[in-house]
Simulated assay, not measured.
Amino acid sequence: MLRIFNTVNGQVEQVRTTEEGSWVCLSDPTDVELATVSQETGVDLAALRAPLDDEERSRVDSDDDYTMIIVDIPTVEERDGRDHYETIPLSIVVTAKLVITVCMRDTPVLHPFMEGTIRGFNTYMKSRFVLQVLYRNATMYLRYLRVIDRNSDNLELKLQHSMQNREILQLLELSKTLVYFTTSLKSNELVMERLRILPRADEPNDRVHRLADSVLPNSGRIRNQSLLRLYEDDEDLLDDVITENKQAIEMANIYSGVLTNMTDASASIVSNNLNNVMRIFTIISIVISIPTLIFSMYGMNFQNGMLGMPFTNTRWGFIIVLVISLVVTALVAWWLTRSKFFK
């Protein structure tokens, strides 16, 4: 889907044609839409196709005509009645006249920008736009991590009385999601560190910091060719983005450790629950065997005068034997339920 947005009188509106300061949004684009945008903007078609590969790594690439920033964003989709979380690439291409975003799905990360609900958002402020998208991306990670934490708490309560594999499989799925989140967040962190070396608004383009180049390879090339320039407010926003991203990394690591321990303990919980069930069945089997033994002995054929069974010749013999068997059964059941062997 190809959509074009522009800031008109302080409001974000969807327009039909591109102009200077526009934002071109490509969500699950077709080949025709990609070719059209490439022809109109001069951006290489291969660069526009890059984020359509879900294995594309996060990076910053600068060319003479554009600067491309690829980051991993969180996404959620429903599978079997449950939310499934994963990460996909999002590309932000900044040219001399406009900004292009490319993603394989219609992501909720960009929805507030389309609706104009982001404070201080203008399509023509390219550097601010990029940082606002990154900030929104970091907050989405934090939101999904909190949801995952609540889901893990619910699974923990279910595991206390569960003997099924469903909850364990859900824990493994959440653990896998946290691994993806952690890997993507660390890759995004490298991208944000590269954004730190972008040229400032009050310095010339040809100034290259050797110190930055010694820390990040090819940083001088990025500074010289980048079409982005950081203003004073942008630097503060970049610091906020890095802080939020680091917080997301810490939360993902903490939740991952908790889920790992919970997964290890779940097997013991299921085993203990199974032992409790087997304990109940064992007590029932022993208790039932007592009256079964008594009545099976009385069911044997004994001749009169030969080792007769007690109470066989009395009028109330059957009732007496029945009462005795019930009393013995009750005593044995009481002892077994309190015996340390069956705790």
Rank of each mutant, 00 (worst) to 15 (best):
V24Q: 07
L190R: 06
R210H: 11
T107V: 11
D63C: 03
V277D: 04
P310I: 11
L90Q: 00
A252S: 14
P204V: 02
N205F: 14
C25H: 09
L157F: 13
V277I: 14
L172N: 06
L198E: 09
N253I: 13
A46V: 05
F281R: 05
P89T: 09
E33F: 01
I288T: 15
V37G: 00
S289H: 05
M262Q: 10
T282M: 08
E189C: 00
N301V: 05
K126Q: 11
L45R: 10
V133C: 13
Q225R: 10
A46R: 07
R119C: 06
I254R: 12
K246Y: 09
D80S: 10
D240L: 05
R338T: 10
V328K: 09
E156S: 13
Y298I: 05
A333G: 07
L237F: 02
I73Q: 02
P74M: 04
E56W: 05
P310V: 08
E78T: 14
T123R: 01
T75G: 02
E40A: 10
D153R: 03
N304Y: 13
T67Y: 01
D65G: 06
D31K: 04
V332E: 03
F181L: 07
E173W: 05
R136K: 12
G317V: 12
Y124V: 07
Y180T: 04
M163L: 15
D80K: 09
N272R: 08
S162D: 15
L145G: 04
P112G: 09
